[in-house]
Design a protein around this nucleic acid. Structure first.
Lengths: 340, 340
DNA sequence: CTGAAAGCGCTTACAG
DNA sequence: CTGAAAGCGCTTACAG
């Protein structure tokens, strides 16, 4: 039987009101009584019951983080960044994953009003995701990661995917103007892929090289699929000057490996760039030119926004856009040492 | 103002007791009343208040997972495995990280009795970790990952590191009997490193090759440190037949890269093996021979044990040992194609 | 099968 | 500065 506020009160010879006061350091308490109470708390090892407190305060100090998947470094960095910031601000973090077919009712309902979490950070990376509909019905503070849900009032933190992809395509063109550029994306409904592809199309069109359908392919972001796809095609690709613009590092790494398996030299016979700048980008040979997405920052900023929203319900919804920047390494023949 | 059980009761023309009964489907409720109540719940979008329920039931359906760090694939796999299983069993998961200097009081106290979480999974990977002391004082259900804390009654899930390391050293010796074998571990107080090193010493001693001090080095598990260390020494290492046994894949990858940077061939001029079988192991060239540690399983089983402990307080503490197995790839010259 | 009432452990006006 | 009391939203014996 855990010790309650009443036990403390008895031991310190005061009322529970007084104990509560020293606990919350609200109203002023006499120095001596305060000391007596604190000693009693210490001796008894008293910890306030979170539920009782939550019942009164309608606040749990818990934030929920809902991600589409918990797999891979991308998400683990978000979790890390969010967790650090949450602790800093005095919140705990709950975490859960919801895949695209899941409407997330399960997760959201337990977590949401009048629920466990004071607020919730949701990443909805797929356009068709059912959770988007569920979100509309929730009226707990929400921060959306990397995507927006229409008709929901919420704060948002996004990566400027378009700028990043735009800069990347220009970087490719700067080094190798005449290259055929093949875009290899994730699923068609994936929001990141949509943005990155849009930027690719736009820049290409701008330089009068409207992309043809054969140069746009959609895979599933995985190493395996990309490797299998690439191994069949690297020889053909390398027959004319070509750069592969993969929408994540995993696929880029797979393509590099497929090229190497076919005894091609990257970047000489084939150029490859990735996206995200996960650790994989530095483990390939040659290392990947890619676009850095500040994942940990994303998590941290989302937590920050959420906490602000929780304490200040009526502040206007804000949108934070994080820049993504091109990181030049060797897989594309960098401008620094590309002319050796 | 969220809708309460009272609102539902009014709408359905019953008492709150009855609403509670249909909610918890305990005692039998008349079909018609039940239906009426369910409709009211649906219409009002009623969700029971978690705190009120927790106050009564002394149960939150939340599990806490405390890891030494949230960085890297190793931990993200544990989180993933744990999270999946937790959802399956109807629990939510809270997550937090605690570093070795932190005594975790902060985390544990909020999370622990009479706290938020019904139980807690803790990974304590460092012998000196202060959290070990804090753990002794907690009397909430605990499952320990990958390490034990004396004097605490708890369930445990461990990897059989020793068997894994043992098998690995024998594998190295089987292919290259006369190789000098250098063990590169993490910090001296790291429990995994301790076990892996012990196995290395034992097998070496068994074959009458008691290791010398120069062949045992402690780094910090990171790619960077290992690369810097290796780049200075690869030439010397390769001057006699040598295998590097790194205590994780990160360091193994760094050593492979250092060797390549020195234009050495792996496994011909230098052999390298890793530990963990994280994804990195398949991204190096050559790919790493390593020891597979079932991380996701570890998370899932920990959750399972914890849930059993929560519901059956008096069951005897159990210890689940997961096997680690050698995965043969190319970095050590496999038996399959090592004699080309 | 159903309702009135006690109680879970807190916080917070309200008096004093 | 401090205490008695109400109340947060539930669950669960206890009567009926």
């Amino acid at each position: 039987m855990p010790v309650s506020i009443e036990d403390v009160a008895k031991k310190a010879n005061v009322s529970i009101s007084t104990v509560s006061r020293v606990l919350n350091s609200k109203n002023i308490v006499n120095q001596d009584t305060k000391k007596r109470v604190e000693e009693a708390i210490e001796e008894l090892g008293y910890r306030p019951n979170v539920f009782a407190r939550g019942l009164m305060l309608q606040k749990s100090n818990i934030l929920a983080l809902v991600l589409p998947d918990l797999h891979g470094e991308f998400y683990s960095e978000i979790i890390r960044g969010a967790n650090l910031k949450a602790r800093e601000l005095g919140y705990h973090m709950m975490i859960s994953s919801v895949d695209a077919d899941d409407d997330g009712k399960d997760v959201l309902s337990t977590v949401s009003s009048p629920g466990l979490a004071d607020g919730i950070i949701v990443m909805v990376s797929d356009m068709d995701s059912k959770i988007r509909k569920t979100l509309k019905k929730t009226n707990i503070p929400i921060v959306l990661l990397d995507g927006e849900v229409p008709d929901v009032k919420h704060d948002t933190v996004v990566i400027d995917q378009r700028m990043g992809a735009d800069a990347m395509v220009r970087h490719i063109l700067a080094g190798n103007e005449t290259d055929r550029i093949i875009f290899i994306g994730g699923p068609q409904t994936n929001l990141d892929t949509i943005d990155r592809l849009a930027a690719y199309k736009q820049v290409m069109t701008e330089v009068n090289r409207t992309p043809i359908n054969e140069d746009i392919v959609h895979l599933d972001y995985s190493y395996k699929t990309a490797f299998e796809y690439a191994i069949e095609r690297v020889m053909e690709w390398s027959s004319v000057p070509t750069t592969i613009f993969a929408a994540n590092d995993e696929m880029a790494a797979a393509i590099v490996d497929a090229a190497i398996a076919a005894t091609l030299n990257v970047p000489q016979h084939l150029r490859v760039v990735g996206f995200d700048d996960t650790r994989i980008a530095q483990l390939t040979h040659p290392r990947l030119t890619t676009v850095r997405v500040p994942m940990a920052d994303m998590g941290a900023i989302a937590v920050e926004l959420l906490c602000k929203r929780i304490t200040e319900e009526n502040r206007p919804a804000s949108k934070v856009t994080l820049q993504a920047e091109v990181v030049i390494r060797e897989s594309c023949g960098s401008r620094l040492n590309g002319d050796q």
